[in-house]
Write a protein that binds this DNA or RNA. Structure first.
Lengths: 241, 241
DNA sequence: CGAGGGGTTGATGGTTGTCAAGGGCTGTGG
DNA sequence: CCACAGCCCTTGACAACCATCAACCCCTCG
């Protein structure tokens, strides 16, 4: 069930069999969420955190006038709201962009982990810090990169993150978002997203059609988006080997 | 020395005398950093984290063409790079925007804390998550808010954060940034920052002159920036009382 | 067959960036 | 005490990027 979650963790650190047991034991139940539904609303008090097992989900913040802005996209294997363990209520909404499968992990269990498994605690702390790294790159994208570069950067980010959990096949991955939702993640309008997608297609480096991203030239795409994967910490930390 | 740091922590949680001792014992040395110098460079391996005791510092990411973007501003009491404890090297630079005083906390000591003080570990974990909350608001600002609203939002954010550590007096606080640096934090050009500052001044709600921010009408300023302080988690968590 | 959601296109406009020049303050050295 | 350098701030003219508005198309599903 949570194999992709373990794949993600093990990409950055060693997880002992004992720790794996503790993680698996923490899942209290598996539930489904339909596309375009809210998984958790901002402000609501939470006593469980959620691992995304399949589908695409997002964190979003709604403005007074109803416009919405995504602050992160989530792929299978991600903890959607591990930060709710320490925050207790979220500062943003959690939405399912496609049909999703979710594993629930009670905070009581996470508390046990912090008390019994200091190393695993650091691993999870690391993972919330990794979210912050992704946020920082989004800040840079939104502040300084053109629509074209910003979109290229996002496609690169998702390529790497999905590849880690085995969801890239032949340079291709599913991205079940409408152009409207893509606009809400890139800080653009859907009209401009449409035009930028066409421009990216014209380069021949990447194509987004029928909710599938096809990367034809990853190296060139990285260059367009000024993408450097260092911020995703793909190598296991030598300190923890 | 680290009184402001404790003020910040205690604004959100109870810190026992024993925990306070552990925190104080963790500081290995106090050092100074001159204005406009780099405190830590991205990629460098770190074995200490840094608490800002006085001054203003920032996290910044440099682009290939040399343009820089701040991803967060830091005030006295903040851990500048608590996340380096789990990341081991940073994905961004740390720079002093004014003369700064810094307290160094070796990672070895933080490791001890994670092993002996589960509650304090959660408190620090919470603090890195709080950074992520701030990042998310910056994402929303950069993606959706006008230059005017973005600037108003930043002035509100700093007002609250500085007030927590007692650095707001009569609606006024020091912000030792040039307009160029303000542009680098707001994702604007210095020319446009200049014009936006004039526009904000014309409203009469806030003024920024000689590196001092004077807030005359905080309520009105919040409205301009669509600022809601909920994301700063100012109330102590009832769970921990 | 009709409705509705999503995608596409064209025309136009506004916000912000770029380029360039000048002004004012502050510190320093003659 | 004055001259000057250098940094920062300010202003104007112009351009670019992206938003807005509006219409139309296509596909799917009831």
């Amino acid at each position: 069930m949570i194999d992709k979650h373990l794949l993600k963790l093990r990409r950055r650190d060693l997880i002992s069999p004992e720790e794996e047991v503790a993680i698996r034991a923490g899942v209290s139940s598996i539930i489904k969420a339909k596309a375009d539904t809210v998984i958790a609303r901002h402000g609501a008090t939470l006593d469980v955190s959620t691992i995304l097992l399949s589908g695409i989900a997002a964190r979003q913040i709604e403005m007074l006038d109803g416009r919405r802005q995504m602050t992160e996209l989530h792929v299978a294997g991600d903890f959607l709201d591990l930060h709710s363990f320490t925050l207790k209520h979220l500062d943003h909404d959690l939405v399912a962009l496609s049909d999703c499968t979710l594993a629930l992990v009670p905070h009581a269990h996470l508390q046990e982990i912090t008390e019994k498994y200091p190393h695993l605690t650091r691993v999870y702390w690391f993972n919330t810090n990794l979210d912050a790294c992704i946020h920082r790159q989004w800040v840079v994208s939104l502040a300084r990169r053109s629509a074209l570069a910003r979109m290229a950067h996002l496609f690169c980010e998702l390529y790497i993150r999905l590849d880690i959990v085995g969801l890239v096949r032949g340079g291709t991955y599913d991205l079940p978002l409408t152009q409207d939702e893509l606009a809400e993640t890139l800080g653009l309008t859907s009209v401009h997203v449409n035009r930028t997608l066409q421009e990216l297609r014209r380069t021949g480096y990447v194509n987004f059609d029928r909710k599938v991203v096809s990367v034809c030239d990853f190296a060139a795409l990285k260059e367009v988006g000024e993408f450097d994967d260092a911020y995703l910490y793909l190598d296991r930390l030598p300190e923890f080997r």
